[in-house]
Design a protein around this nucleic acid. Structure first.
Lengths: 139, 139
DNA sequence: ATTACTGTAATATTATTATTTACAGTTTAG
DNA sequence: CTAAACTGTAAATAATAATATTACAGTAAT
């Protein structure tokens, strides 16, 4: 898993935290500690999934488009990191006669897919609001 | 997650599949499609956790030291990839005054730790035997 | 029209993964 | 007792993936 999921959650939490629920890619990038282009790319995914809205042009930026009370980390995961649990390196060789060498990868792929859907179930219980509350309490 | 978990599972399945449950690092590496040094490193982790036994010297190699019927993928995960769900890149900056920038990482770390223990619970239901059976059926 | 934004892609940089090589230590066989 | 076939481990290198930088066209406000 790369960091896009974490960045997406961080950005959404940040928007939820701001009084007007809005910020530019540059402001978000500073808060997250990354660069604006990366934020824009990730926000694009969140926009396609209805979690944020874009306002282009001067004074524009990103606006939270979901209710932190009901939006869950699973929605965020699906938006930016679908299928990212499985490593991209593959074991074995499909051409081999040995069933272990040729067949293990497919079975492991299934294991990872199932694992990811379990992960989703867990993340479905975590709302943006609950994360925000935990952050506030941590201080 | 890097591929060590998949390689470890593949290696164990391969040993379980062999009549004498034994093979050298070179043989395993060929089956997995990687190099012997990597296999030896991973097998070292599995040995420390009692999943395989090493036989050094001529005619040596690795021997399965667990019952495929009861050994689970969770044991393998714990042996080789503990804490690997969380990405190593971190968002935010602990020095910042903004609670979101300084506090999100710690909360996300907790989310990943919990997610990993959920993952473990799922993998605890999958035995080496069941993976081996699936591979055999796939043909 | 100019300014301040987003969307997107190409390129560069850095970090992580994986491979290769090497060698000391161990056991078996002759 | 010595050579051969293994493991254990680490260092060096190569390959790949993640991240950052740069650039520029498109859009909306002033």
């Amino acid at each position: 898993m790369n960091s896009e999921f974490t960045i997406a959650v961080h950005s959404l939490i940040y928007l939820a935290y701001l009084p007007d629920h809005m910020a530019s890619s540059e402001t978000i990038a500073k808060n997250v500690s990354t660069n604006p282009a990366r934020i824009r790319k990730i926000m694009g995914c969140l926009r396609k999934n209805g979690l944020v809205k874009t306002k282009e042009g001067i004074g524009g930026g990103y606006i939270l488009e979901c209710d932190p009370e009901t939006a869950t980390l699973a929605q965020v995961l699906r938006s930016v990191s679908y299928g990212s649990l499985k490593p991209n390196w593959c074991t074995g060789n499909p051409e081999e006669a040995c069933p272990i060498s040729s067949g293990t990868q497919a079975v492991m792929d299934q294991v990872f897919r199932d694992a990811e859907s379990h992960l989703e179930k867990y993340l479905d219980q975590i709302t943006l609001r609950s994360v925000l509350e935990k952050i506030k309490q941590t201080r």
